[in-house]
Design a protein around this nucleic acid. Sequence first.
DNA 1: CAGGCTTATCGTTAAACGACGATAGACGAT
DNA 2: ATCGTCTATCGTCGTTTAACGATAAGCCTG
Lengths: 111, 111
Amino acid sequence: MTSAETDEDTLIAGLAKALAHPARLQILRLLRATPGCIGGDIVDAVGLAQSTVSEHLRILKAAGVIRGQIDGPRICYGLNPDAMIALSGFLATLTAPANTTCCIPQPKAPS
Amino acid sequence: MTSAETDEDTLIAGLAKALAHPARLQILRLLRATPGCIGGDIVDAVGLAQSTVSEHLRILKAAGVIRGQIDGPRICYGLNPDAMIALSGFLATLTAPANTTCCIPQPKAPS
DNA sequence: CAGGCTTATCGTTAAACGACGATAGACGAT
DNA sequence: ATCGTCTATCGTCGTTTAACGATAAGCCTG
């Protein structure tokens, strides 16, 4: 319950870090909305250099958020919906109101 | 639908960045599980220097994820469940299966 | 008022991120 | 076989982050 949560936290933090950039969110939006497969269109959409976009794609792929499938000379990227369950679960945990009881007059345990 | 989403992306990316560190996740877990209010107990729990923990708290507070309420000499930190709705909504968007249709043989428009 | 406790801030250092240009590799088409 | 296209990688630079110790500020208690 102590060391296990550390691994969980590392995993979730990695997922969150993958989402912690507007360009990557834009890429995810694009991948979700695009009916077919896209390659260099992502570069055109985000307005950054090709190498920069490739790096963002690499990060997203490393985090498991997207998956790339080679399609001839280009690569088909697609979302991996399962990747986010850990983060979604954590968010659901936070969103649960739980307790509004704050600042209970409960001093530190005496020695 | 184009420039508006940029702001959205910036907001969501900021929230994700706030979660993109194991220590901060641990703090959020702790705040959720703690019945009363805690102050320096967070320092003890995460095992980092007091100044480092204070910085993490500052980041979480700046992102709106937590709120601090002064309680005498100490400060009561509590979760702000409403902060995550934007990120949760985005995640729900991604989780939706949408389309598995990838790599449709739809070549680029000829010149 | 003095002491102790709790939290925030400052200054510093090492590591990681983001972005770019340039380059190299892979593949289909000609 | 050669060309053109698409993608990944490398090297670099500036900025940001994470972590720490030391220090200051705020507020109860005695």
